[in-house]
Design a protein around this nucleic acid. Structure first.
Length: 363
DNA sequence: TAAACGTGGGC
DNA sequence: TGCCCAAGTTT
């Protein structure tokens, strides 16, 4: 029995690791997709999206050949949509430049869009068993407790110190297991709120536990203050089709679809806002806003109340887009097949219920 | 370097 | 108007 810190963590991992789809193959494609999906995402949700993704896009060639709209649809609801756009871009580069094969060094991997220092090292170690360590939020938390680090973990100097600690702990030839062990340990046992110190296999090594300050590690920066906004959006229906527009690619929710709308300004009603926004964004003059409902959703530091209306148009042409790259008059079936931001998706789900109710009362 | 980027779930 | 959290990257 090897009772070093590293081996105790790896022993714990072999006994307690979760059975995850990408751990069955450790293929570079599986590891890559899982790593990107799990960024800022909870494991449970990640697994569902991963399995659905692999049924549709089983390899890098399939991803490269897919339409970006379909890739975004597979990503719908996960957030941080540049991750999906970058996956698609990177797959195209891998196929056209690397013959569909992944580079195996962190340096080469990091040249691909969407792959930063963490993901490059994760793929290199977990898929290719390269001797490099990874530092994510779990690793930061575990290290800051084991070594009782009292400076903010996001500081550059602290960050460097944690990397050096991990490098020293990494057992040569075992990076695949060791890196996952620290992260899984951080996720399942050395968790943020209620760490399992009483049953911890490395409690003898933990300086924060010894000092009684586990709940004060890691030291985090204060969070940004939330911003509360009212937004208004309008569903314009004409001859059974719906007006939808595709957002600009460099904006939030880039390349996703939506109904036109925007922020309700000071002294303005949501009804006035939806009419103004339609004119500004599409050149269309709409009228008679009829309330559909209010939908709450949050993103980054924003807390949004979305006021949704049916609207009517005096004329349909010409359309002049200022906040979108493309528009369509979509059938309901097409609306369902497009990727919407979560707030607008809630609205679409509500419309879906309305349709069902209408069909039942008409029959 | 700090801010922006999304979302749903646990407590 | 709840707050904090989740396997980061980009600009």
């Amino acid at each position: 029995m090897d009772n070093t810190l590293s081996h105790l963590l790896m022993d714990w991992f072999t006994r307690h690791q979760r059975d995850l789809p990408w751990r069955r193959t450790y293929s570079p494609y599986h590891v890559w997709i899982s790593e990107i999906m799990l960024q800022q995402t909870q494991m449970e949700r990640g697994v569902e999206y991963f399995n659905r993704w692999m049924r549709k896009l089983p390899d890098v060639e399939a991803l490269a050949e897919a339409r970006e709209d379909d890739v975004l649809k597979l990503w719908e609801g996960l957030g941080y949509y540049s991750r999906a756009r970058n996956l698609h871009r990177a797959a195209c580069i891998l196929c056209s430049v690397h013959g569909g094969c992944f580079p195996s060094t962190p340096e080469e991997l990091q040249k691909l869009p969407g792959i930063g220092p963490y993901t490059a090292r994760a793929i290199a170690s977990i898929a290719f068993e390269r001797d490099v360590c990874v530092v994510d939020a779990n690793v930061e938390r575990v290290c800051s407790r084991l070594y009782n680090i009292d400076t903010p973990v996001k500081n550059r100097d602290t960050r460097k110190r944690i990397e050096e600690i991990c490098e020293a702990l990494l057992p040569p030839g075992q990076a695949r297991i060791f890196n996952q062990a620290v992260m899984e340990f951080g996720s399942l046992l050395c968790s943020p709120r209620t760490p399992g110190c009483p049953v911890c296999p490395v409690r003898e090594f933990c300086a924060a536990l010894r000092e009684g300050v586990v709940d004060q590690r890691p030291v985090l920066r204060p969070p940004a203050k939330p911003i509360f906004l009212d937004m208004a959006t309008g569903v314009l229906r004409r001859e059974g089709r719906f007006f939808v527009q595709k957002r600009l690619s460099d904006d939030v929710w880039g390349n996703l679809w939506e109904f036109p709308g925007g922020v309700v300004e000071q002294g303005e009603s949501p009804e006035q806002a939806v009419i103004r926004e339609y004119l500004e964004e599409t050149g269309l003059t709409v009228s008679r806003p009829a309330p559909i409902g209010r939908f709450k959703h949050s993103y980054t530091r924003y807390r949004i109340t979305l006021h949704a209306f049916f609207v009517e148009a005096e004329t349909v042409a010409p359309v002049a887009l200022t906040a979108a790259q493309e528009y369509r008059w979509s059938t309901w079936e097409e609306v369902c097949s497009l990727a919407f931001p979560a707030g607008h998706r809630k609205l679409v789900e509500h419309l879906s219920l309305l349709r069902k109710f209408e069909m039942e009362t008409n029959s």
